[in-house]
Amino acid sequence: MSDKKKQITRRSFLKTAAAATGTATIAGCSGGLLGSSEAFALEFQEYFKEHYRLMTDEERTDTIERLERLSEIKKNTTIDIDSTKPQENVLYGYAFNVTRCEGFMECVDACVKENNLDRESKNQYIRIFEMENGEMLPDQGDGKFFHQVPRKGHFYMGVQCFQCENPPCVKACPTKATWKEKDGIVVVDYDWCIGCRYCMAACPYWGRRFNWNQPQIPKKEVNKKQHYLGNRSRVRGMMEKCTFCIQRSRKGKVTACVEACPTGARVFGNLLDPDSEIRFVLKNKKVYRLKEDLGTDPKFWYFND
C-alpha cells in the first residue's frame, strides 16, 4: 500500500501541475485582469474535481462550498447546495391517474420553478399530452395544446423521466456521468457530462433534456434550495432530467409536481413501504406502464379510476 501511495498518478500530477500554473497566473495577474482572482482559483479547482461517485465526503463538502461561494461571487445569490444521500429501504415510485388529470399544466409550471429550468428555451421536464379517448400512446396525442381545458372527449397523460430500474440511458453514457442511485433515482453529474446526447437517443420515453444555451433564470425566481445532483445551476451543452425533485424527496417531501397538482392525479411514495399510497394504487387499481415490453422496468405507473 505504501508503495502505491508514493506513486504519482497521471491525474494527481496533472492536478498539481495545473494548480501550480494556476497560482502562477493568478499571482501574475493580481492586478485584476481576470476579474476576481478568488473566483478564478475556485473555478480552476472545480475544473479538476473528481466524479461525484468517487468523491469522499470531505471532497463533496469542499466542492459544495466552492460552488456556493462561486454563486455568491458571480451571480450575487446565496444558495444552499445539499448532498443528502439515499435513505435505507426507500425506492421511489410514481403513479399517474389518467382519469383525474385535466391538463391544467400546474405541475409543469411548478417543475420549471422548482428545478431552475431555462426560461428562454422553455425547457420542461414534464409534458402533458392531450389524447382522444381510446388512444394509448402519447405519440398519438397533442403535446402542445393551448386552449381551455378539459376538452370534451379527451384525456390527458403526463410524461416525464420514468426513473427506470433498468435504464438504457445509463448504459449509453460514455463518460458514466449518469447513474441510478440506490433509491431508484437516475441522476446526472453535470460536471462529467460531455453533452454527447447518447442518453437522449437511448431513452425510449423522451425523458432527457439538452441545454442548447446557457440557462436563463430571473434572479428573483431562482430556487435557492438545491441538490448537487438535482437543481443546481447547469451550463450550456449538457443533459439534464427529472430527478423526482431529489432535493425535496430525499428530505421527505413530495415532488413539486405532486404538490402543485390541483386534481390529485399524481401519487408519489416509497415502493418498499407496504402501507404507502403508491403500493395501494399498485394493489387496488388497474395499472400499466408505458412501453413495458422494452424491459426498461420504469417506476412510473398509469392508472385509472
Binding site: F104, V108, K122, K144, Q148, P150
Partner: peptide, 12 residues
C-alpha cells in the same frame, strides 16, 4: 373543476 386556461404551454 371548472374549465379554464392551462397555466403554461409546451414547445415542441
Amino acid at each position: 373543476f371548472k374549465k379554464r386556461w392551462p397555466k403554461t404551454y409546451s414547445v415542441p
